[in-house]
């Protein structure tokens, strides 16, 4: 005799808020990359301006979670949902901060001639964005299998970052004139790598939400 509870509505509302925030953070990354690739500094400025919306949602979600903890003393899966939501919102807020930082570098880069055609950075950006999207899908659907896939995908982004870094290093060694641009591009690559890390954190939180197991810091064995 399972009962419907009013508390379920509040939990559903919390999930909706998180999904909204996630959509916004995802879009921030998307637009930040566009502003770099299309050399559109006006777009970059708009992304920077919009970061406060994500921040506001972060605060709102934290307040909601604290309220739910204080008033309902949730247990078991309810408890895991509320604590996961609190951490997840912080991860999303950081993703949006990274989008802001990418935009700042893009604005600087857009003022000087392009160092090279951007190939790997958009690829990294695409992968990182897919990871963010899938980690959020995994959260909404409470799908631990999808979450585990996201955790695995992080390695690809790390590999791309390494490859790009070596390429930029060779530019800098050959021609010191490129140093300032190459460094800015490697900052962007680093930001995208961090976005993927945050997506991984979200995915690990989803595994905790669904299975009650903390898999963070239990790196899987590296295949030989």
């Amino acid at each position: 005799m399972v009962q419907q509870r009013h508390f379920d509505e509040e939990l559903a509302e919390l999930k909706t808020k998180l999904a909204r925030m996630a959509g916004l953070a995802e879009d921030q990354i998307d637009k930040a990359l566009t502003s770099l690739v299309t050399r559109d500094s006006a777009l970059a400025c708009r992304v920077i301006d919009r970061d406060h919306k994500v921040n506001a949602l972060d605060v709102e979600i934290e307040e909601t979670c604290i309220e739910l903890l204080a008033l309902h003393q949730p247990a078991a899966r309810d408890l895991r949902l509320v604590t996961t939501a609190m951490k997840l919102s912080t991860e999303l807020e950081r993703i949006s901060d990274l989008a802001e930082s990418i935009c700042e570098r893009a604005i600087e880069l857009n003022e000087v001639p392009q160092l090279k055609p951007y190939i790997d950075i958009p690829r990294m950006g695409h992968l990182a964005r897919v990871m963010v999207k899938e980690s959020i899908d995994a959260f909404v659907k409470e799908d631990a299998k999808l979450a585990r896939k996201v955790v695995m995908d992080d390695d690809f982004v790390d590999d791309l970052m390494e490859q790009l870094f070596r390429e930029l290093l060779s530019f800098m060694v050959e021609n010191p004139q490129t140093i300032s641009r190459a460094i800015r591009l490697s900052f962007i690559a680093k930001s995208l790598e961090r976005v993927a890390d945050h997506a991984t954190n979200i995915a690990e939180l989803v595994v905790y939400l669904v299975e009650g197991k903390i898999i963070r810091h239990t790196s899987p064995p590296v295949p030989s």
Binding site: M1, V2, Q3, F7, P74, A75, A76, R77, E211, G212
Partner: peptide
């Protein structure tokens, strides 16, 4: 038991579903 019960019945009871 209060963070990650293994049985659904326990989960439903401690979360007030029955």
């Amino acid at each position: 038991l209060f963070t990650n019960p293994s049985k659904k019945q326990t989960e439903d009871y401690i979360t007030g579903r029955f």
